[in-house]
Every structure is written in C-alpha cells, then in structure tokens.
C-alpha cells in the first residue's frame, strides 16, 4: 500500500524527469508523453517515424534521465537471437558461463526492429512478454524495470520483415513521431550546432523511484463506468460487433485485442498521474485511445485502397461510443 510520502515523491520525481527531457527533446511532446506512459504502465513502446526525427535521441535521453541501465540493439537481417538474449560461453576455468545479451538492461532500444528476421524478432518479443530469457536450460530474469522501445521506419519497406500482428500486439502503445514544425526545427538546429551539441541530461530518478511510481500508478482508481467505457471502445473496433460504427464495418478487418483495453486503462492512469491528478477521467481514456489501439486495428484492402488510416477509424469510434 502506498503512502502519502510515496505519492509525493513519485510525482515530484516525474515532474523533474519531464523537465529534463524537455531540455533536450524539442517538440515530440506527444511521443515523450506516451514513452512515459509506457514506463509507468510497465509496458513496451513501438515508436514509428521516418529517420531523423529524434527517436533514438529520445530513448537515450529518457534512459539517461531515468538513471537506468540502457542498451541499444541495431536490428539487421543477420542478427541472431543469441545476439539479443546472450549465450553460454565455455571457460576452461569455470565451465559454461552465461554471458547476458543487450536485452538485460532496464531500457532497451530496438532500433529498426522490422529489419531483423522473424526468428530474432520472436526472441525479443518473447523476452518482452515474459520478462525473462531462456538460454539452453537456464531461465534468466530480466531486470526491473524493463522497457523496450522499438523503432521502425514506416516508408522504407524493402529488406524488412514487418512485425506480425500478434507480435505488434505485445507493444502496449504505439507512438507516431511527426515531423517538427518550423519553430521546433529551428530550435533543433540551434541546439545541435551551437557549442558542443546536445548534452544528455543528468539522472533525475533512481531505479527505486521508477518502481515506486509504477506502484502508485497501479493504485489509481478507475470507476466501473470508465472500465465499461474502455471495453465498449475496444468492442466498437470489431466489424462484427453490435455497436460497431459504419466506418468500422466498412474498413476494419480485425478489431483490437483485449490487450487494447488494458492499454487504454493503464495509459489513462499514467496520464492522470503525469497531470498530477488523483483520479482517472473520461478524457484520459480518450487520450489513450489512439496510442493504445492504432497498431491493433487491422484495416482491410478497401481501406488501403481508399487511403483510410487506423487513426481515422479510431476517431470515428471515439465519436460513436457514448461517454458514461
């Protein structure tokens, strides 16, 4: 059970964290927000955007400010599962010894995750889900907190292995990095070209404080009508559902999975925490709708032909489902 001091400490620590991240990352507030939701909700983030938008910088800044261990895996077609989870190495003195792979870190950046083969992707995604890695006959627990921030390029598809829907579903949220506006772009240029370039922030949190904040967020109350609202939003994405709006019936092939409901509520809780509120509101759930469901709604060919995006469908779903 959390105490008043726990609550105050966690809120203060994350306020400092946001302040330090904003000192490095220009624009991309929505992406930073969703990244923090991911951390607080004990999930993993799929970060999508064209190259050069600061995805990697964001992950590095986040891990540095969090004061957690960080590792980066550059996914390539020849990357093997052992390159991620580690392997047993024989030593003449001590026999076989496990050498942990880069997955054994608090914050893991899986850069261009769609460039690795499905076999390697599966190794990563299994570790994400189980929070453990099995090598040979031994199972090794991953450190806590453990968060994977995977990036992928949506436009360059040649030589890539798009993540299967079942594996995409393992990511709690998906953040879409957008191109900065003129003012933000000027600021990015200025910060990167003046002096010694961008300086990563000093750690603002400890591992203990991150875990404490995760516990606090878990205690946030969600009244039953809001849980029902989240469930109705998820069900409304299913074209066979009774409450599915017309746009869903026309353009959606598969609706969101039950994990989408978890993501909605956890994201709403994290958003309320970061906003220094003590209760979850309808607007929190609505704000979490797109990051939680956009990678879980599979559109049909007709939608692709007509240029309909999952984001547009979700907007219609939000309008169609009445608020409690």
């Amino acid at each position: 059970m959390i105490t008043d001091e726990d609550l105050a400490r966690a809120q203060s620590a994350f306020a400092t964290l946001r302040e330090r991240i904003s000192g490095v990352i220009v624009g991309q507030e929505a992406v930073v927000e969703v990244a923090l939701w991911t951390l607080l909700a004990r999930g993993h983030l799929l970060l999508e955007g064209v190259p050069g938008l600061g995805k990697t910088l964001l992950v590095r800044t986040l891990s540095r400010a969090l004061g957690l261990s960080f590792s980066r895996i550059q996914f390539t077609p020849d990357l093997m599962p052992a390159d991620i989870v580690g392997t047993n190495v024989f030593s003449q003195d001590s026999g076989f010894r496990f050498v942990p792979g880069p997955i054994f870190a608090n914050v893991v950046l899986a850069d261009e995750v769609n460039r690795a083969t499905p076999k390697t992707q599966s190794a990563l995604l299994e570790a994400m889900q189980e929070r453990q890695a099995t090598v040979g006959t031994e199972t090794h627990l991953l450190p806590e907190p453990f968060v994977v921030l995977a990036t992928q390029n949506p436009i360059e598809m040649e030589g890539t292995y798009p993540l299967p829907e079942a594996q995409v579903d393992r990511f709690l949220f998906k953040a879409e990095a957008s191109f900065p506006g003129e003012r933000d772009l000027i600021e990015i240029i200025r910060r990167n070209t003046e002096g010694g370039g961008i300086q990563l922030p000093n750690p603002a949190l400890t591992q203990e404080e991150v875990l404490l904040a995760q516990e606090v967020v878990g205690e946030y109350p969600v009244p039953r009508p809001l849980l029902e609202y989240a469930a109705r939003l998820v069900l409304a994405t299913h074209p066979s559902g009774a409450r599915a709006p017309e746009v869903v019936r026309r353009y959606v092939q598969y609706g969101a999975s039950p994990r989408a409901g978890l993501a909605l509520i956890l994201g709403a809780k994290a958003r309320a925490f970061l906003a220094s509120r003590y209760h979850v509101g309808v607007e929190d759930i609505q704000a979490a709708l797109r990051p939680s469901l956009v990678h879980r709604v599979i559109l049909n060919f007709r939608a692709e032909a007509e240029g309909v995006t999952p984001g547009q469908v979700l907007e219609e779903v939000r309008k169609a489902v009445p608020t409690p």
């Binding site: 205690e219 109350p221 969600v222 009244p223 979850v280």
Partner: peptide, 13 residues
C-alpha cells in the same frame, strides 16, 4: 474515484 478508493482503503490517494 472516492468511492473506489474508500472501498480499497487507499488513503494516500
């Protein structure tokens, strides 16, 4: 939210 928290006894929130 107060009703939920009172039921769970989470006084901090």
């Amino acid at each position: 939210a107060v009703e939920v928290l009172a039921g769970r006894g989470v006084t901090a929130l």
